[in-house]
Design a binder for these strands. Structure first.
Length: 623
DNA sequence: GGTGCGTTCCTTTTT
DNA sequence: GGAACGCACC
């Protein structure tokens, strides 16, 4: 690896960074970066990583740690760094989710905890809503004060988080005693269960570990010279606490990137003041990116107008130079009823596709419950052979490693000559089978490759067999028996818990069969359909965070969709802003006077209409 | 089987 | 805020 002087370094892949971004890359110390939609946050972090490695500011063998919320953001960032820099840097760029980071630390240093707080090695990770928590509370004499189950669950979590890790404290407070005993039970297991921990409990244990054990803390700080925090506006109290405990007053340099205007997770526990707190606690230097590389100028104008209602003073956001000054279309569709609305939508969508927009570059957004708003549209589009689908189930499944493996096997069974998939498959299987391909007997090596090609041949035969309803089930069973369930479990521990694995398999079988039937048992088309390459994604605004599309249709700008506007109007404004800022070139908001036979209103959320109807903002269409 | 009353769910991620 | 449930009662 050639080391370059800082002033010699320039951005990788011919990407030009705006002045502020370049400053973020080269400035030392703790930084806070406010970056609006389309500012290129991931690219910025990737370039900064390259800079730190190239200039040896991140000195070998120290590493960079990146923490994100979602698996795919963590994977994306890692991929981008490897793409930009080269795969030799793989092991020096750790990209984790908060939960994976915490769980990793707990699993490695579990035994460094005080004895009372050591969970069993085979502890289960449980969901916050798991009944086990309720039964642990009941067992220890907790009397529920809420009749409502959801409020009770929130209360359980609050109580669990209140625990201060003092089993020996003399507190006689009834609730303290109960919480202490519940923790004890969940840590040690009860009623023939093993230890059961939620991710929040895991995080709390890691905070305890770090704050009470300076060796672990030092090890962590020695490992990482730089830390990147993505989507920082969504951090919860606990996550911020974790970051503080790990890195405050150390020589690790933090870069937190986020956008207050896209803060739409406060209702789910995001810490409202996290930017200010971090700014103060870490004495961070503030930067703000002003480029919007994503949206066309007319869309940026609307975003700027939106800034005012999000209490933001600055409004000099600059669109990318790739656009002409008047590029971008914004429409407000006001329809007499939902049928007229969907007719216009279907026509418009078909027109976009005819003009060359790929279905996967079009997105339909809803505030919540997409199925209540889009059933008719899905059917109408299907009449003309345009596929669209509600993404929820697919997105969850596509993240599952076992599902990725299935899809990979199907692709290879149809065509063995796709190098990337073949390489992935071979390395995956060799890991699962515990075979080191670079250091094994020639005999094992040959046997391994023979078994792979034999297996793929058998899959191929299976797939080409006469089609029947059970074909997917048969295929899935065949694959699982080839890889051996035990091996899968060993590789992905989550699959050994409860019915998790069988649920994934069940859901995959059902959804894949649906695609198979839809494509007339053409497996190639079914895989493409399953991966969503041919269909228009439909999702909630929350799910769309971080994504971008050429055309965005937001359906149902109605009071009824924003029913909590009174209580969380700031957050709903941000939600509207997020929807708007997903679009590159085209965005439409729709209102329908009737939906599902009910009269709809738009008085509560009038300010959105005022905004859209300002001169030069949106073209209003009546249907 | 109708009524009336109470409750739950909407927007989420994570091994 | 309101749809969709479940349950008790007649």
């Amino acid at each position: 690896m050639r080391i370059v002087a800082p002033e010699e370094w320039h951005s990788i892949n011919g990407i030009t960074l705006e002045k502020a971004a370049l400053d973020v890359v080269t400035t030392e110390g703790n930084l806070i970066v406010e970056a609006g939609p389309g500012a290129g946050k991931t690219e910025l972090l990737a370039q900064k990583a390259c800079y730190l490695f190239s200039t040896n500011k991140c000195k070998w063998p120290r590493k960079i740690l990146a923490i994100s919320f979602k698996k795919d953001s963590a994977e994306n960032l890692k991929r981008r760094v490897v793409d930009r820099f080269g795969s030799e840097i793989q092991s020096r760029f750790d990209s984790y989710t908060y939960d994976a980071f915490a769980k990793n630390l707990l699993d490695r240093f579990r035994l460094a905890l005080a004895e009372d707080f050591i969970p069993k090695a085979d502890y289960d990770v449980i969901n916050d809503k798991n009944d086990i928590i309720g039964s642990a509370f009941k067992k220890n004499g907790f009397v529920s004060q809420y009749s409502s189950k959801s409020k009770q669950i929130i209360n359980y979590n609050t109580l669990l988080n209140r625990f201060d890790f003092t089993f020996n404290s003399i507190s006689k407070d009834v609730m303290d005693v109960i919480v202490r005993n519940v923790w004890k039970d969940l840590l040690n297991g009860f009623d023939d269960k093993s230890s059961c921990l939620t991710f929040q409990m895991i995080t709390k244990l890691v905070i305890l570990l770090i704050s009470s054990n300076r060796y672990v803390r030092n090890a962590l700080q020695l490992t990482y010279s730089h830390v990147f925090l993505d989507e920082f506006q969504d951090s919860t109290d606990l996550q911020y606490d974790l970051v503080k405990n790990c890195f405050l007053n150390s020589n690790c340099q933090l870069t937190a990137v986020g956008d207050n205007k896209q803060r739409i997770m406060v209702w789910a526990g995001a810490r409202k003041t996290v930017f200010e707190d971090y700014h103060r606690d870490f004495n961070a230097k503030y930067f703000r990116l002003l480029m919007n590389h994503r949206s066309a100028p007319r869309l940026v104008e609307l975003q700027k107008a939106m800034y005012l209602s999000l209490n933001d003073s600055e409004d000099n956001i600059i669109p990318s130079e790739k656009w002409n000054k008047n590029d971008g279309e914004v429409y407000l569709l006001i329809a007499e009823n939902d049928y007229r609305e969907l007719e216009w939508l279907a026509d418009n969508i078909k027109m976009q596709i005819k003009n060359g927009v790929k279905p996967s570059d079009i997105c339909v957004l809803c505030k919540q419950r997409p199925s209540d708003y889009t059933q008719g549209l899905i059917a109408k589009l299907a009449e003309d052979g345009v596929f669209s689908r509600i993404e929820n189930d697919y997105q969850d499944l596509l993240k599952e490693p076992i599902v990725r493996l299935f899809l990979n096997i199907i692709k290879l069974s149809l065509n063995t000559k796709i190098p990337d998939e073949l390489e992935n498959f071979i390395s995956e299987i060799s890991v699962l089978k515990g075979l080191d391909l670079y250091n094994c007997d020639k005999k094992d090596y040959v046997e391994f490759y023979d078994s792979i090609s034999h297996f793929l041949n058998q899959c191929s035969t299976l797939i080409n067999k006469q089609c029947c309803e059970d074909i997917v089930r048969e295929f899935v069973n065949f694959c699982v028996s080839f890889v051996k369930f035990e091996k899968i479990k060993a590789q992905y521990p989550a699959y050994s818990q409860g019915n998790y694995f069988s649920n994934v398999i069940e859901n995959f079988t059902e959804l894949f069969l649906k695609n198979l039937v839809q494509s007339n048992f053409d497996w190639k088309l079914a895989v493409r359909g399953f991966e969503g390459q041919n269909s228009i994604p439909i999702m909630t605004i929350h799910k769309s965070k971080g994504l971008e599309y050429s055309c965005v249709y937001f359906i149902g700008l109605e009071d009824e969709a924003f029913w909590n506007f009174g209580a969380q109007s700031d957050e709903d404004r941000s939600t509207f802003f997020v929807a708007l800022s997903r679009a590159k070139r085209f965005v439409t908001f729709t209102f329908s006077k009737f939906r599902n036979g009910k009269c709809k209103h738009r008085t509560q959320i009038n300010e959105f209409y005022d905004l859209l109807q300002k001169p030069g903002m949106a073209e209003v269409i009546y249907r």
